[in-house]
Simulated assay, not measured.
Amino acid sequence: MAPAADAKMSGIVAATFTPLTSEGEINLSVIEPYIDYLINKQNVKSIFVNGTTGESVSLSVAERKALAEDWCRKAKGKMDNVFVHVGCMSLKDSQDLACHAAQIGADGIAVISPSFFKPGTADDIKAFLREVASAAPNLPFYYYHMPAITGVNVPVRDVLNDIEDLIPSFRGVKFSGYDLLDFGQCVSNSQPNWSVVYGVDEQLLAGLVMGANGAVGSTYNYMGSYANKLITAFENGDQLQARAIQFKLQELLSFAMKNRFDLGVNKQLMSEVSGLSLGPPRLPLVQCPQEYAKSILQKYHSLFQDSRSM
């Protein structure tokens, strides 16, 4: 899949789960039906692979390469864009994955901040990002901000200052944080060729109001069609409809969060809704109890069984 010159993150982008066998090995056989499900059932045609939802930090570099290559090859001619997350704790591993993403025809790459030895300033972050981007200088490059996971709370607005001078391929931010002040500053100071996409699914509408170009998230794997309707309602000026959809999405997630809505639960819910066999998460994460997954699935169906009401 040759990357499009103008490939940009926009609209609804599903952060894909990584299919595993019951023994915990990557299961590439699920990827093709997974892609078909996203396109035909969720109207989602762009994906973000090997990110947090994809359990990237629990995968080896070899596994991440195999997954990225399979996603790109099987999405060719079907999906609009495949963005590959290449961030690692190791700079060398990140550069290796970035170079590989360019070789397999990814449409863009993203990098999350290292979170063991953490960068302390915006300049530290930019130095790391620059070195990774240099391994794939022709690929659109995105900074992936997720402070709740990384513990790196440096304002993204500061990271963006003069970043194109260091990284000519820089094309935007995947902003997965709750700070709408920082997010708004990113949008208001972005360049015309950038995309600033929001990554907190339960606050999608707020992100759109602040000027988000789109959204990347895990729940869009099984609620992408509703998120698309939310964006359409917002763009048409139908705020009541947009809020109604957002409130339903919030009700589902609020119900799930009353107990433990972690990646294992989320992955199980995707398996139940889609019928795909995604397998368990990799340790140290564990699969959720079946009864808990069923209770969330019942809530999902009670909220979204009649799409005409949306």
Rank of each mutant, 00 (worst) to 15 (best):
S169H: 07
N221L: 04
D201M: 03
D70A: 12
T150K: 10
K74C: 02
N43G: 01
A215C: 07
S94D: 01
F255R: 13
A75I: 08
P3G: 14
V286N: 06
L20R: 11
D107F: 00
K229Q: 14
D182H: 06
G199K: 08
E131L: 05
S90C: 09
A227Y: 09
D158I: 02
E32I: 04
V152P: 05
S10H: 13
F128K: 06
A75F: 12
L303I: 11
F83P: 00
A122S: 11
L283I: 10
K267I: 14
L204T: 15
M270L: 14
V187I: 13
P137K: 09
L180Y: 13
R260G: 07
K118P: 06
A122D: 06
L303R: 07
I167L: 08
V216L: 03
S195R: 08
A148Q: 13
G237C: 06
E23Q: 11
S134I: 02
L181A: 05
S46E: 09
S94R: 06
S134D: 15
V156E: 01
E272M: 13
P119L: 04
A14M: 02
A206C: 12
T232P: 02
S176D: 04
Y222A: 03
I149C: 08
M89R: 08
M1R: 13
T18Y: 14
A106P: 00
N138C: 08
N153W: 15
N40F: 11
L91K: 02
L160M: 15
G207S: 10
V30Q: 13
M89S: 12
A242Q: 08
G24V: 09
Q298K: 14
M89K: 08
A122V: 03
D93V: 08
D96G: 01
S134Q: 11
E63N: 09
L59R: 08
K258S: 04
E69A: 14
Y143N: 07
S195C: 08
V44Y: 00
E23W: 09
V159A: 10
K174S: 03
L166D: 15
P19F: 00
L160F: 13
G11D: 11
V197Y: 00
Q287R: 11
S225C: 11
A2E: 12
L208I: 05
L139N: 04
T18L: 05
K299R: 13
L269T: 05
L91E: 05
S195I: 07
H85L: 04
Q42T: 06
M210T: 09
M146A: 11
D107A: 08
A62W: 01
A14V: 12
V111Q: 02
V286T: 15
A127N: 13
Y222Q: 09
G177Y: 13
G237M: 11
I231E: 06
D238N: 14
Y226T: 12
D306S: 12
L166Y: 00
G211L: 11
I296H: 01
A215E: 03
I125T: 12
G279D: 06
P3T: 12
S169P: 00
E63G: 07
S225M: 09
C186Y: 00
L139T: 04
S274T: 14
Y226P: 00
L205S: 05
S188V: 04
S46P: 02
G237P: 03
P19L: 12
K76N: 15
A106C: 03
K78T: 08
R157A: 15
P289F: 12
K92M: 09
G172F: 14
E55I: 09
P289N: 14
A101Y: 02
L181N: 10
D96M: 04
